[in-house]
C-alpha cells in the first residue's frame, strides 16, 4: 500500500505519540503505583496478582496522621525549606548582583571556587558539624537545618542568579542613567522587574532541594525537628510489610512538592539552564 506524504506524516505523528505515552506511563508507573497502594488495605497491597480495581480506603491516611503526627513533620519541612531558601536568597541576591554588574578581576575564579565547595562531600564534614551543633545544644532543632540548607544551596543559587543578572543588557541601564535615573530608580524600575524570573527560579530549585534533602535531616534531627524526608527514612526498618501505610506517608510527603513542581515547571527550567539557552 502506498501512502502519500501527508498520510505518512499522520502515521508518524500517531506512532510517535503512542510511543511517547508508553514511555511516559512506564516512567511514571512507580509514582502511580505508590498512590494506588496508599488507598488499599495492607492485604490488598500485597495481593497476588496485584489488584487494579479495589474498594478504596482512606484509613492509611488517618492512621499516619494519628500515629506519627504527619502535620508536625510537614511543618518542619515547610519551615526549613522556606527558611533556608529565603536566607540563601537574602545573601545571594546582593552578591550576585554586585558580581554581575561590577565584576572584579577575580569574580569568575570566586564563582568557580563557590561551585567547587559543593564538591566537598557532606559526609566529610559530618562529624564536626554534628559536634558543633551538639555543643550549641541545637541537635534536633530546625535552626541549624535552616542555616545548613541555606549554605548548602548558596553556590548553585549564586550561579543561577549571576548568569541571570548577566543577561540583563547594560545598555538599558546606561540609557536610564543618561535620562537621570538614580541607582535606586534603576534597581526598582529596571533591574528588579527584569530579574524576578531568575530569582523565582533559583528560589524554586532551592525549595525543591531543601524539601527533599535527606542527609542532614536524618543526621541532625529526631522527633522534634524531624522533616518529612527523615520521617520516611524511619519507615525503612523492616518491621513487617506495611506498604499501604508507607505509601500513604510517602504520597503525603511528595504530593506538595510534585504539585508545586508541575505548576512551576517553566519557571524552574529558565534558571536551571544557567544561561545556556538563549
Amino acid at each position: 500500500m502506498m501512502l502519500n506524504i501527508s498520510q505518512r506524516k499522520t502515521v508518524k505523528h500517531w506512532a510517535t505519540g503512542l510511543f511517547a505515552w508508553l514511555v511516559a506511563l512506564i516512567l511514571f508507573f512507580p509514582i502511580l503505583w505508590m498512590i494506588m497502594t496508599s488507598f488499599k488495605t495492607e492485604l490488598q497491597a500485597i495481593s497476588q496478582p496485584p489488584l487494579l480495581f479495589w474498594e478504596t480506603t482512606f484509613d492509611n491516611y488517618i492512621l499516619i496522621q494519628e500515629r506519627s503526627d504527619y502535620l508536625k513533620y510537614a511543618f518542619n519541612s515547610l519551615y526549613t525549606s522556606v527558611g533556608g531558601t529565603l536566607l540563601a536568597l537574602i545573601i545571594a541576591v546582593p552578591s550576585a548582583y554586585a558580581m554581575a554588574f561590577f565584576p572584579g578581576k577575580y569574580t569568575k575564579d570566586i564563582l568557580l571556587w563557590m561551585l567547587s565547595t559543593k564538591m566537598l562531600p557532606a559526609v566529610g564534614v559530618l562529624i564536626p558539624i554534628y559536634m558543633i551543633t551538639q555543643m550549641g545544644g541545637l541537635l534536633d532543632s530546625i535552626y541549624p537545618l535552616i542555616l545548613i540548607f541555606a549554605l548548602m544551596n548558596l553556590p548553585i543559587i549564586m550561579w543561577m542568579l549571576f548568569t541571570y543578572f548577566k543577561e540583563i543588557p547594560k545598555e538599558i541601564l546606561e540609557a536610564a542613567r543618561m535620562d537621570g535615573a538614580t541607582t535606586r530608580d534603576e534597581l526598582r524600575h529596571i533591574v528588579m522587574p527584569l530579574s524576578w524570573g531568575g530569582i523565582a527560579s533559583a528560589g524554586l530549585l532551592s525549595l525543591i532541594l531543601c524539601w527533599n534533602e535527606a542527609f542532614w535531616s536524618i543526621q541532625l534531627t529526631a522527633s522534634d525537628a524531624g522533616t518529612l524526608a527523615a520521617l520516611i527514612a524511619s519507615y525503612s526498618s523492616p518491621e513487617g510489610l506495611f506498604w499501604a501505610k508507607v505509601s500513604a506517608a510517602s504520597t503525603m510527603a511528595c504530593a506538595p512538592i510534585i504539585v508545586f513542581g508541575w505548576f512551576c515547571q517553566k519557571q524552574l527550567v529558565q534558571g536551571l539552564t544557567f544561561g545556556a539557552v538563549k
Binding site: A24, L27, F28, P30, I31, I208, S250, A253, W262
Partner: peptide, 21 residues
C-alpha cells in the same frame, strides 16, 4: 509532566518505592 515527575520525589521515598513495591 509525567516524565519530569520523578525529579520531584524525595530520595528516601524513591528508595522505598523501588525497594518495596
Amino acid at each position: 509532566v509525567l516524565l519530569i515527575s520523578p525529579f520531584f520525589i524525595m530520595p528516601t521515598v524513591n528508595a522505598l518505592i523501588w525497594k518495596n513495591m
